[in-house]
Amino acid sequence: MISQIVSAIGVMVAGVFACALYYWLSDKLLSLALPVPEGNVRQASINLNRRATIRPWLFLGPALILLGVYLIYPVIATFILSFYDRSGDYYVGFANYRWAFFDQQFRQSIFNNILWLAVVPAACTFFGLVIAVLTDRIWWGNIAKSIVFMPMAISFVGASVIWKFIYEFRGGNETQIGLLNAIVKAVGGDPQIWISLPFWNSFFLMIILIWIQTGFAMVILSAALRGIPEETIEAAVIDGANGWQIFWKIMVPQIWGTIAVVWTTITILVLKVFDIVLTMTNGQWNTMVLANLMFDWMFRGGGDSGRSAVIALVIMLAVTPIMIWNIRQAHRDAEGH
């Protein structure tokens, strides 16, 4: 056990050293290969120019290789695989797409993903905004913010265990040790098996993600609220606006951009939600979502790369508008500088 840690640290040190050595050595080799001879001004300037042309690619090299092998190549390969059979050997045209279109479980997953998309980003943004406004007004607001923000650090699996304990159901006359069922019983209701409750069970899974992500929304929106120019609010006060009007008509419109960022970031997260569904229900009781269905098909019956690829592409397609919007936004920011 100790030896494993030692070797991990050893690898880390060696890795960092090798990386540093690569950059240092490639830089030195470049200087050696393209010398700048004294006296020969023409040759010197040619070589200096060549160095300046090559050097950026030496700096970028390792990053580009990683991005190419682990992200760009797979995206292309997944696209191609979606037209091939389960083993990836025989071209089957649109058969996998046709399968997806008529598959009951795929439709269920799409439906659930839409449900998640409709609820989670909206809920996180709303609660985040409300908590940001409330905590900014009190002296212990930062402590409160830390506590709401904390679940961000907890893994989805850890959070699932935490919430599974809250949803715990015990049959018969046994004492309910799950908080939710204990409360339900205390107010005279019937304890339920929440995670298998038809239709509503998805919402109980969503609560977990909302619990985790509200802190993120709160932190970003809180900073945006503080950035609102004082004058706009003072002017509204002078004009006799009340608190409600100031909030909705003065503050919220000024942070629309930030709200959009929070919303889209959580949207991307929701599209990829996997761990929570896997640990809570593993897709049973009609809670399947695309990411889990994709993982399922990757290994189901020895794996079906074609169907799995189609499902991955659907997720990719869903994030594409956000991706394009991000790129355009970054481009505009860069031009603005």
Partner: peptide, 17 residues
Amino acid sequence: AVVVGLIVVPLQMALIP
């Protein structure tokens, strides 16, 4: 632009290949 675009590429796209 490519780097910005790659930020949101879902992991699921990378897994099979």
